[in-house]
Write a protein that binds this DNA or RNA. Structure first.
Length: 803
RNA sequence: GCGGAUAUGGCGGAAUUGGCAGACGCGUCAGAUUUAGGAUCUGGUGGUAACCCCGUGCAGGUUCGACCCCUGUUAUCCGCACCA
């Protein structure tokens, strides 16, 4: 079978798998289950590139192995198809996004099938299908009913190019995630999901799930929980309290000024008392001009304006202190106002230096003339705290003091903000809300779902970033579900993250019209046993979907609190030039080209072999050829395999390889699993013989990686049924050890010689034999033996020194 | 600045977690086959002409023994970032 005919073979087995429904998960609740998940693709017009293949191959191999181990495996695929690219393409070409999306899905499906992925094609989910987004809308309404949806005027990240409001996550670094233009700040009425209410639950949930430490750390960092205190400062000559948040209430005696965010509402309330209001207004205008990005760029240079005529009283010592406004204080975090302790906070210190404000040391240990001291030390200038040396103690003392006097309390804050949940675009799920003059915001009744996207001709967004839906009178005008009066529909759509926040649940019961998924099926399939995906989704999709799932759990709609029992990451495939693949660089590799030239098995094997799966690695055409060579040589094993039973010279190697491949797949060390099979192949060729039984084992080991070739060889061997569903080979631990072992002999830690002995040799004889070796003697002549060590099965180390 | 990670031949990367550094593959060199090229097969391949010797970013340390542990340091990548 030299240079096996991969084209014929691959087509043959792909057809067979599909006809026989070989990889379809069954709802037989008595079987042990395994739910393996990959991140479903956005079906772009460009089709897949090899990065997609890598992203799915990890779980593919695991799932194929699980099936052979007897599990009822669900390995589903779907399409996250709402989103801007399809819509922009539609605007350009006049084609309906529906048509564009269907074409792209078709294209992706074909590519996925040609790569031989063992997806369950009966469970395909498409987020733009109205039978799917009906349930996306349903979940939204449930959140609305539970007070997790609200509408608020807010400064939002707005992309003037895409004409949409973006979440913080979509505008990182001040650039639009979609078109990379500069994002500007704009005041707008927007929808929010109250994800902050779930901050603690999302944090706690991390404890019991199997995520790599770096993913957990990133999520914790993103949620950004901090503990501290809220403290009320009285505004002079008023009953008004200026509330601040601080993590260091123990430094209250060091407060010498306060800072409010420029947008702080109290400024307007007391505008009449502020003597320099024009100066304040001017500063506000200046800040408004800055994008959030610019604002964070100017870290060093502090700016601000003192409020003349308005000051505050420090509640712990009654001192009157000035108030400033500055854009280094954000309205969006804490209370939008801070107490400034320049001696022990670097930002406050810089501000104080610039504006000539007092700096009072309250913690000893640093030189506050040079910089703020943020370390620990003895408390000074702090009345009842003086002499305390432990930070925790000082904070505790201060907290109880604040509580006793009723001027402050313990508090918790999060960096995470509520989730701006809307887009002014056509190609998304319509938000199922009706605005009624009398009743306010009313949810669309559940039995009216799905609220379908109306057919429009022009997908261009309206002026000022209005949704194209706003132009469709038949859609907008409706009656209030509550009172029946004429009302208007919400015309915003949901962001792309909506559909992907729960798709893994729909796979479980994709055709159910009554519920998003039946309870018994959810109970059987959840949680997802293993979710593999890209690191770029760690702070967005992975948090959003945990939030949605946790909410569904809280309302009793799903049986487990956390959707993913285990999550792993993967590295990207770089271009041959070592740079990220991109159309503009022209270094993109199309999997179809590789499949045409070398076959899907070669592509799959190479992708898994090219390096550490979790790290990024550059594409290398020669490496692909090497894998093709390997598979050709495997195909040729048919010529030498004869008879049954075991080949004595191969027995240990066979068992070792089964063990290594089995374990490596579990650890996602696919590269070394393949290397082990290559080593075994070399040994077989050296021995020059193997039995049909051994070939059967080899073929089953390789099957998850190169399934088409293995099916063909399995058939030739007369194997029963499909190789893909045959039993995973088992090994005997006792047969993994060699009878004879090679011992390395070190003198003073340096290897000087080796010798081969039976594996059960004792320390004494091993050391004695080692000493007799000529090469060893060279280095031990005229030396005194200080120490003699034997590491069983490994080495002898003789420690010597001159006589 | 904070958090996470990485650093090993010409290249991608191994190393049972403190025990023979460089598995496996690529590339390369030599040979076989071939009219030739390609393909294939066999063998060699960290540096060095070389036994010695030197070698896992750099400098120390612990240990009989360190890619692995400790201290310091440099570089690169990723995430967050005036978070009070």
């Amino acid at each position: 079978m030299a240079n096996y005919d991969f084209k014929t073979i691959e087509k043959k087995w792909q057809d067979r798998w599909e006809q026989e429904g070989a990889f379809n998960a069954v709802d037989d609740f008595t079987l042990p289950k395994f739910y393996g998940l990959i991140e479903f693709p956005y079906p772009s017009g460009a089709g897949m590139h090899v990065g997609h293949i890598k992203a799915y191959s990890g779980m593919e191999v695991v799932c194929r192995k699980r099936r052979m181990q007897g599990y009822n495996v669900m390995f589903p695929i779907g399409f996250d198809a709402f989103g801007l690219p399809a819509e922009n393409y539609a605007i350009k070409t006049g084609m309906h996004p529906r048509v564009v999306t269907d074409t792209n899905i078709e294209k992706f499906s074909g590519q996925l099938k040609r790569a031989g992925f063992s997806f369950d094609w009966t469970r395909v989910v498409d987020t733009t299908d109205e039978n799917y987004y009906k349930w996306t809308q349903w979940i939204f309404l449930k959140m609305f009913e539970n007070g997790l949806v609200f509408r608020d005027k807010a400064f939002v990240n707005y992309c003037p190019h895409c004409k949409v409001v973006l979440s913080n996550e979509d505008s990182q670094g001040g650039k639009c995630d979609i078109c990379n233009s500069d994002v500007v700040q704009k005041s707008k009425d927007v929808w929010f999901l109250r994800i902050t209410e779930y901050a603690d639950k999302l944090l706690d949930g991390l404890k019991d799930i199997d995520f790599p430490v770096n993913i957990k750390a990133q999520q914790e960092n993103w949620i950004g929980r901090s503990t501290g205190a809220f403290v009320n400062f009285t505004l002079t000559d008023t009953d008004e309290m200026l509330k601040i948040y601080t993590t260091r209430p123990d430094t209250l005696f060091g407060v010498t000024f306060m800072v409010m965010a420029p947008e702080h509402p109290l400024i307007d309330k007391y505008a009449s008392r502020i003597a320099n209001m024009d100066e304040v207004e001017a500063y506000r205008v200046e800040c408004g001009k800055k994008t959030e990005f610019e604002r964070t760029q100017l870290v060093k240079d502090k700016t601000g304006v003192k409020l003349n005529g308005l000051s505050a009283i420090n509640p712990v010592n009654g001192k009157e202190i000035p108030i400033y406004i500055s854009d280094y204080v954000m309205m969006g975090y804490g209370t939008g106002a801070i107490m400034a302790v320049p001696a022990h906070d670097q930002r406050d210190w810089e501000f104080a230096k610039k504006f000539g404000i007092d700096i009072i040391e309250v913690i000893k240990g640093g030189d506050i003339e040079q910089e703020a001291y943020t370390g620990d030390g003895e408390m000074v200038n702090s009345d009842f705290l003086n002499g305390t040396t432990n930070k925790k103690d000082s904070i505790e003392k201060m907290l109880s003091f604040l509580a006793d006097k009723g001027i402050g309390e313990k508090g918790v804050q999060y960096k995470m903000k509520d989730w701006a949940f809307n887009r002014q675009r056509y190609w998304g799920e319509p938000i199922p809300i009706v605005h009624c003059e009398k009743c306010g915001m009313v949810g669309v009744p559940h039995d009216e779902l799905p609220l379908r996207l109306p057919d429009v001709k022009n997908f261009e967004p309206g002026e000022g970033g209005e949704s194209p839906l706003a132009k469709i009178d038949e859609f907008v005008n409706c009656t209030c579900p509550k009172c029946g009066a004429p009302a208007k529909r919400e015309t915003d759509t949901m962001p792309q993250w909506a559909g992907s926040s729960w798709y893994f649940l729909r796979y479980i019961d994709p055709k159910n019209d009554d519920v998003f998924a039946a309870e018994d099926k959810l109970k059987y399939w959840l949680p997802i046993d293993w979710y593999n995906g890209g690191m770029e989704h760690v702070t967005r999709h992975l948090i959003y979907s945990r939030f949605w799932h946790r909410f569904l759990y809280d309302i009793g709609a799903v049986p487990v609190a956390e959707p993913y029992a285990k999550r792993t990451g993967l590295g990207v495939v770089l271009g041959a030039d070592g740079v990220k693949m991109s159309k503009s660089r022209g270094n993109v590799v199309d999997p179809d080209d590789v499949i045409k030239q070398y076959g899907a098995d070669t592509l799959r094997t190479y992708i898994m072999f090219m390096g550490d799966y979790t790290a990024s690695a550059p594409w290398n055409e020669s490496g692909v050829k090497g894998c093709k060579r390997f598979l050709d040589r495997v195909a040729n094993l048919s010529d030498i395999a004869k008879g049954n039973g075991v080949t004595p010279k191969l027995e240990t190697a066979m068992h070792k390889t089964i063990k290594k491949v089995s374990q490596d797949i579990e650890d996602m060390k696919f590269n070394t699993a393949i290397a082990a099979m290559m080593t075994l192949l070399n040994e077989i060729n050296n021995v020059g013989a193997m039995t049909l039984d051994e070939l059967s084992t080899f073929v089953r080991l390789l099957c998850p990686f190169a399934p088409h070739l293995c099916e063909e060889m399995w058939e030739q061997l007369g194997g029963e049924g499909l190789c893909s569903l045959a039993q995973w080979p088992s090994y005997d631990e006792s047969k993994c050890v060699d009878n004879e072992i090679e011992i390395a002999v070190q003198v003073n830690g340096k290897v000087r010689d080796r010798f081969t002995v039976p594996a059960d040799i004792d320390a004494q004889s091993a050391i004695a034999m080692a000493k007799e070796l000529d090469k060893v003697k060279e280095f031990t002549n005229n030396m005194a033996f200080i120490k003699e060590l034997y590491v069983p099965g490994k080495l002898v180390n003789l420690v010597v020194k001159p006589l």
